[in-house]
């Protein structure tokens, strides 16, 4: 069936007793997209993934895959496959049998099974590991087997539940690049769950930020970072200066919460002139932290409130504590938040 989306959640909720794990969520995931569901633990992102996989059913709302309503259908009747957080490799089977499991269930003849297993092992760079048991593999290798076991079925959507969480930092960064490369190569829709904002920014075409069972904002990594819509998004993706109430009114003349990223603010001594078209404010440097590539200032504004400013160390002079300064920024970088 033709449709312009791979996954559609239509007003989906999942309640566990009084807890609204997923609360009235609606969004589409485009075909071939690398879509990330980002949020802190307990925000509903994993529950959402399980609703798409079919391990769990929504309390209300409907789940569609490629134009087909799959609400209520068990996992084995959905054209999606999952890479589990703990990999869930079958301990009693060797690598080849693990990868071939889906084909074995579908009664694909053995020669073809073996051929496709070799193809997959090639794709995840594990050729020659056919006879190993999962217990004889490292974390990164298990991860690749889990990926191969899912991809061999040529699902139209691949779900990944924090698959890199158990790996150490270096391996995780390497796997991020590899996953992205594999996704490009096979052209399958990837739905990726993570709590790591850096991971989300690195890999995704689009990100959905989850908070308390609701989707706060959906957009490209750049949109999400540059134009956060809510206080939560501004704080969860990177760091941001948040000003509200009187302090915000003093800067913008309007009520509501405003946010501005520390690296968007320029800092100079109070007697320097501010360039045309920039907004500015005056204050006093309260704290200076030298961090090698950049310096972080804490500036107390005359109009009230503090702003953190990050200045690249282009010159080697830093402003001393107590120095009177002018802060300037492009008006578009000052975001009013919901």
């Amino acid at each position: 069936m033709q449709s312009d989306y791979a996954v559609r959640l239509d007003r989906v909720s999942r309640h566990f007793g009084d807890v609204r794990a997923v609360d009235d969520v609606t969004f589409d995931i485009a075909d071939g997209e690398f879509f990330t569901m980002l949020g802190p633990s307990g925000s509903g992102k994993t529950t959402c993934l399980r609703l798409i996989a079919g391990f769990d059913q929504p309390t209300s709302g409907r789940v569609f895959l490629h134009g087909q309503d799959v609400t209520g259908k068990p996992p084995y009747e959905r054209d999606v496959n999952t890479v589990f957080q703990d990999y869930a490799l079958f301990p009693h089977m060797n690598v080849a049998d693990n990868i071939a499991y889906g084909l074995m269930i579908r009664k694909v003849p053995k020669p073809e099974r073996m051929r496709r297993v070799r193809e997959m092992l090639d794709l995840v760079q594990l050729s020659g590991f056919e006879q190993r048991k999962p217990s004889q593999l490292s974390g990164g290798q298990r991860q690749r087997v889990a990926l191969a076991r899912a991809l061999i079925n040529h699902p139209r959507v691949l779900l990944l539940d924090e698959p890199l969480g158990a790996l150490d930092l270096k391996l995780r960064q390497q796997m991020q690049i590899e996953l992205k490369a594999i996704q490009k190569k096979v052209g399958i829709t990837f739905v990726f769950v993570t709590h790591d904002q850096e991971e989300a920014l690195t890999m995704s075409d689009r990100i959905a930020v989850f908070n308390q069972g609701k989707v706060e904002q959906i957009g490209t990594p750049e949109e999400m970072y540059e134009k956060p819509a809510t206080v939560f998004v501004a704080g969860f993706l990177g760091t941001s200066n948040l000003l509200s109430g009187e302090h915000a009114r003093a800067l913008t003349g309007l009520a509501g919460t405003i946010s501005i990223r520390p690296e968007k603010i320029r800092i100079c001594t109070a007697d320097e002139r501010v360039a045309e078209g920039l907004q500015s404010a005056r204050g006093v440097v309260r704290d200076v932290v030298y961090l090698g590539t950049h310096t972080r200032y804490l500036v107390e504004l005359d109009s009230g409130g503090d702003l953190v400013v990050i200045e690249q160390n282009l010159d080697s002079h830093e402003l001393p504590r107590g120095q009177r300064v002018t802060l300037a920024w492009h008006p578009e970088h000052l975001r009013r938040l919901a």
Partner: peptide, 22 residues
């Protein structure tokens, strides 16, 4: 691991096949 059963079903096996093979 609880996810073994889910993994099996995710890969297309029904309850009986999951019991038999996993």
């Amino acid at each position: 691991s609880k996810s073994l059963v889910e993994a099996s079903m995710d890969l297309g096996a029904n309850s009986f096949q999951t019991f038999r093979y996993v």
